[in-house]
Amino acid sequence: MLFSLPLLVAPALVAAHGAVTSYEIGGKTYEGYQGYSPVAGAQIIQRQWPDYNPIMTVTDPKMTCNGGTSAPLAAEVPAGENVTAVWKQWTHEQGPVMVWLYSCESEFTACDGKGKKWFKIDELGLWGNVLNSNNWGTAVVFKDLKYSSRIPKTLKPGNYLIRHELLALHQANTPQFYPECAQIKVTGSGSATPPANLLTSIPAYAAQSDPGIMVDIYQGGGTSYKTPGPAVWTG
């Protein structure tokens, strides 16, 4: 089900690395922004993003939703349902995928993503023990151009932002962040909310010096990796 909200105008976009361009929820496809052919006033659930270029610091204000403001629509998602983000292009295979939610206290037009209210519902970092490998979450996106995550079944109903973030680590000590947000209305009979120790602010959910952010995957003999930010909340 779609819920109408005020219209917005998409800015001109520039091609570079990658961004979420649509979502699959409950057998339906919800179109997002397209890097080469933006549609003014597009009736979409995704918050606008300006280009495919990376964000280079964890404290950049664009980290919240890649510069996005409120979208005209929201998708209804039963708690326990999967949300699948889709990319039209992605070029890097080293780095984690992270999926976050933010509880909006009221309407989406007033939901700015500020404050210590973001929580992680999914992540896929390194599996195995070879940093300089393709055994990473972003390699899944590289191969499939999709990433699916389940909304926690016990989550309290309400308006939420869902934020998909790819952290590219293919350049030594030069992290590249690629986040996009969409608007979802979670339904169901759940009442659970994440504990305070799993809530964080975005930007700055971790320090730039965090070993999960500032890392050289080619040197140093590292054999393990911890995704930055709080642990995943499963409900």
Rank of each mutant, 00 (worst) to 15 (best):
F3L: 12
S4T: 12
S4I: 05
S4W: 07
P6N: 07
L7K: 15
G18Y: 05
V20E: 11
T21K: 07
E24A: 14
G27I: 03
K28P: 00
Y30W: 11
G32W: 06
Y33D: 13
V39G: 03
V39N: 06
G41S: 13
Q43H: 04
Q43C: 01
Q43F: 01
I44P: 00
I45V: 15
Q48E: 14
D60T: 10
P61M: 03
C65H: 11
G68M: 09
T69I: 15
L73N: 13
L73T: 03
A75V: 06
E76A: 13
V77E: 03
A79K: 05
G80D: 03
T84L: 06
A85R: 05
A85K: 02
T91F: 11
Q94Y: 06
W100R: 10
Y102K: 08
E107S: 15
F108W: 12
F119I: 02
N129I: 05
S133K: 10
V141A: 00
P152Q: 08
L155I: 14
R163P: 02
N173Y: 13
T174D: 13
T174S: 15
Q176H: 11
Y178C: 08
P179C: 06
E180L: 11
C181H: 04
A182C: 08
Q183R: 05
K185C: 00
T187N: 08
G188R: 09
G188T: 05
G190T: 06
L198N: 08
S201V: 07
A206D: 01
A206M: 02
Q208A: 14
S209W: 04
D210G: 09
I213G: 02
M214F: 12
Y218D: 04
Y218I: 01
Q219S: 14
G221F: 08
T223N: 13
W233E: 02
T234G: 00
